[in-house]
Every structure is written in C-alpha cells, then in structure tokens.
Design a protein around this nucleic acid. Structure first.
Length: 437
RNA sequence: GUGAGUGUAGCUCAAUGGUAGAGCACCGGACUGUGGCUCCGGUCGUUGUGGGUUCGAGUCCCAUCACUCACCCCA
C-alpha cells in the first residue's frame, strides 16, 4: 500500500455533519451583519510580508515568530495572513474607500494562519469572522461594533457572555504611561520573568496582563494606565462606558486587558467563554487610530473585532439555531407486496421520482436503491433525519408507474402513517426539513 | 520554542515478554412480507515509523513523527 498522509500539523479536515453547522454560523453572521449595514470583503489569503510587519507590528508575537512566510518564484516576500485587519485597511487605502460615504462598514470570513504549537482551541489554520468600521468618529463607532458583535452571539444562542472592556489610551497616553511603567519596573527587573524582562524593552505594556502571580503582585504597586490617560482618551472611554450602560448589554471593565496587537488605541475588548481550556477568548477587538495612516492612507479612525470561528463552534450552545441544519428525508422503495420478487428496479425509479417532487418543494431528500427498510433506518440515523418515507408495492398504482401513497414515519416517535402523496407532501412541507441558506 | 501524557482495525478499546482480539460500523446472505429484531458469513492491521535488548517485542530501551493538554501567546 502506498504511503498515507495526514493533514499537516495544526490543520484539520472539517467534515459533515459539522460543516453544516459552520455554514449556518456563517450564514447567521452574514444576516446579522447585513442588518447593521456591513458588507463582505474578501482579501487575498496571502499578502506582502511587509504589510503585516508594518500593520500588526514588529514587537508582536505574531510577526516575531508566528508567520508563515515564503518567497515566491518572482522573489517576492509573502506571508499567509495571520489576521485580516491589516489587509482590510490595505484594501481601504488601495481602493480609495475614503471617498465613499463614511464610515465604511466591512466584514470578512475566512482562514488565517499562525505557526504555533497546536492545543485546544488553537490551530495553525484557524478561521475568523470579523468586522471593521473605518472612517468613523470614535466612541459611537466602538459601541456600534460591540453591540453588533453581541447581537450576533445572541443570535447564535449564547446567553451568558462575558464582555470585557478596557482602554489602552491613545498614542500620547501610552507614551506617558510607558515611561512611568518602565521607571517603576526597571529597578525591579530581577523580579520579572525572562519574557517580561525582554518586554520591558520591546513592549512594556504587555507585562500588565502577565499570568504570573509574582509579577501580578509586583504590578499591584505599579503606576496605573488610567492615571496617564490624556483628557481626550479619558473622555473617549467615558463615552463608550455610558453608551454601553444605556445599551443593556452586560459588560465588565477589565483594567488588565491589554491585547497583543500593536495597533490598538483607546477601546479594547474581549469576550470569553467557559469550556475552551486555556484558550478562552472567543473574540477580541478594539479601536485603531493610526493603522490606515501607517499604511499610506489618510488619518482614519478604525475599530473592529475578530471572532475565532473554531472556538465559537466548540462552545456553541446545544440549543443554538446554528445547529438547525437540513436533515434529508430518507426515501426508500422496500420489498413489501405479494408479487415479490417481480417488485424491483422500476419501483426504485418510482421512489426516485418522489424524491424529486420533495426537492422541488424545497425539502432536502435522499433516496436509496431498492431494498430492506433496515437500511433506510440506518441512513436516517447517519444523517440525523427525522423522517423516513417507505414505498412498497401496495403504495403504487395498479400499473406500478405511479406512486399513489407513501408510508411516512417519524423516526423519533416511530409513529407512522399511510398517506396520499399530496398529504405526505403537505406534512413534510410543514414539519419536515427546510433547505436552509 | 519549553514541558507532560498518549499512539493497536474506519470508531471505542482488550491482549503476564510467547499464535494480534472483541464490540460497534461497513459489505454479502438467511429470516422477517408493517419491517430499526435475530442468525450466518466477509473485508479491514507491516501494533505510528526506525533502530536496539531478547531464543522471542504490541509489551522493555533509544530515537523520530503525529496527536492531546499545558506554558508562551492569541481568535
């Protein structure tokens, strides 16, 4: 036998029936985002490496050690996208979207790539559903995008969401705070771990969300970011908080929430969920005021989020509407009737015609070759079907060219009825599976 | 990149260092002529891979790969 292959490390095949849930989650995302006036953007799956270096930031782990980079045959340095915000901003600039009525509202759905050790909820190819609002005015944009995010998650059936909000201040606030923080930590450098000691130089703010108890104890006495906020940042955050309170979406201020991407300014947020192990964030985002500018566009206010679709589906409530996937009606011609064994292929054709009638009514249906009813039940189980239609000789017309009746059986209750074709059609139209978008 | 655990049939798992098995699933047949039952039979394995110890390795040792979980970090 030839060598067998496995999906590359950190990647996986998504198979039915799970893929139907993915399709439903994405279709619900499109619907909800559409309600807020957001439209889909599809950017390339790879970009110039430099885009991410400039956009995401050299100091981030993503750029520093997690990029899938390669050189193509033309000598170009390219990278499989590790996130999509930078690409969306690149497209905004490239296509002159600042000339459209502002703000521009965009969403995207697709795979992302980061070279990391896989674990629960973390893959090298993973999928994000995200949205970006570009050219907005500030706090109200932050709130709009947060409310849309929560609306989407509620549509998916999430009841208890932990929405964490914080501000990291604008560039000026951060520069001031950075100075104070380094001033406090530098003399205490020996109390920091290796990683945090390095960050003291590269990205001191990141030390704040360290999980180490020793470092947290040390940080208890450190200057607070809040105290370094400029009046502008302070006002921005106050407006976000008051709008959020008015919205009736429960949230919590999490002062230690910093986020790992360099481009965030002012508002940052995160939504976490139980049941995901160590990787408990299903969604993160925030505002970025300098990104479009840094990518050669005009100064533009941006805010967005990214949802980890893999994680989202991992913790999807059992009752989620996204689990309402079409389960085909199983139709089978069975060897019942006194004239066996003449009952055969032409009757299987008859079942095929019945299936086409169901499909024409928008009812997903699947037929099997003539044979034992046992197979029909096995198939119903495999497809999660709720209805089985059986057609025996007695259900056919005298010349056996037409189906007059069918036996309609509900799998769950084992209750069955012998109905005319029209009655069965009506019953299935009413309570049967629908071809969902 | 670091650490721990696990690799036996498509799936779930057995097998004291001594002939690689069971259940489920799948395929075929018998039976059943309102039927998911029952019975018979069948396909599927270089025990992740490569070395070593041994008369003999699924089992012990080393390496390697993969998976899982955690660190780091993030979605």
């Amino acid at each position: 036998m030839a060598k067998r292959h496995a999906a590359p490390k950190g990647t996986r095949d998504l198979l039915p029936p799970e893929t139907a849930v993915w399709a439903r989650v994405e279709s619900i995302a499109r619907r909800v985002f559409g309600l807020y006036g957001y439209r889909e953007i599809r950017t390339p799956i790879f970009e110039e490496t430099e885009l991410f270096q400039r956009g995401v930031g050299e100091a981030t782990d993503i750029v520093g050690k997690e990029m899938y980079s390669f050189v193509d045959k033309g000598g170009r340095n390219l990278t499989l996208r590790p996130e999509s915000t930078a690409a969306v901003c690149r497209a905004y600039v490239e296509h002159g979207m600042q000339q459209l009525p502002q703000p521009v509202r965009l969403f995207y759905i697709g795979p992302q790539f980061r070279y990391e050790r896989p674990q629960k909820g973390r893959y090298r190819q993973f999928h994000q559903i995200g949205a970006e609002l570009l050219g907005g005015k500030g706090a109200e944009s932050d709130v709009e995008i947060l409310l849309m995010l929560v609306a989407f998650l509620r549509e998916l059936g999430f009841a208890d969401l932990r929405v964490l909000v914080n501000t990291v201040g604008d560039a000026e606030s951060r520069a001031a705070f950075r100075g104070k923080l380094v001033e406090y930590l530098a003399p205490r450098k020996d109390q920091l771990g290796e990683e945090s000691a390095r960050r003291l130089v590269t990205n001191p703010l990141r030390i704040l969300d360290s999980k180490s108890p020793e470092e947290q104890a040390l940080l208890a006495g450190a200057p607070k970011l809040e105290e370094s906020l400029t009046a502008r940042s302070r006002e921005h955050f106050a407006r976000v908080l008051s709008s959020m309170e008015a919205s009736a979406v429960p949230f919590r201020i999490e002062p230690r929430l910093v986020r790992g991407l360099d481009y965030y300014t002012n508002t940052v947020f995160e939504i976490t969920s139980e049941g995901l192990g160590a990787q408990n964030a299903i969604c993160g985002g925030g505002a970025y005021e300098g990104l479009v500018d840094a990518l050669g566009g005009p100064p533009t206010y941006g805010v967005g989020f990214a949802i980890g679709e893999d994680r989202l589906i991992e913790v999807l409530p059992p009752s989620s509407p996204a689990r309402d996937v079409p389960r085909p009606v199983i139709v089978r011609a069975v060897p019942w009737g006194r004239r066996l064994p003449s009952f055969a292929f032409e009757d299987a054709d008859a079942s095929g015609r019945f299936v086409e009638l169901l499909r024409a009514r928008g009812i997903p249906a699947l037929d099997f070759e003539w044979g034992d009813a046992k197979r029909a039940y096995a198939a119903a189980e495999a497809y999660g079907s709720e209805w089985v239609v059986l057609i025996g000789e007695d259900e056919l017309s005298a010349d056996r060219q037409t189906i007059e009746r069918v036996v309609l059986r509900e799998v769950r209750t084992r209750h069955e009825r012998r109905l005319s074709v029209a009655e069965a059609m009506d019953q299935l139209s009413e309570t049967g599976p629908k071809a969902l978008g």
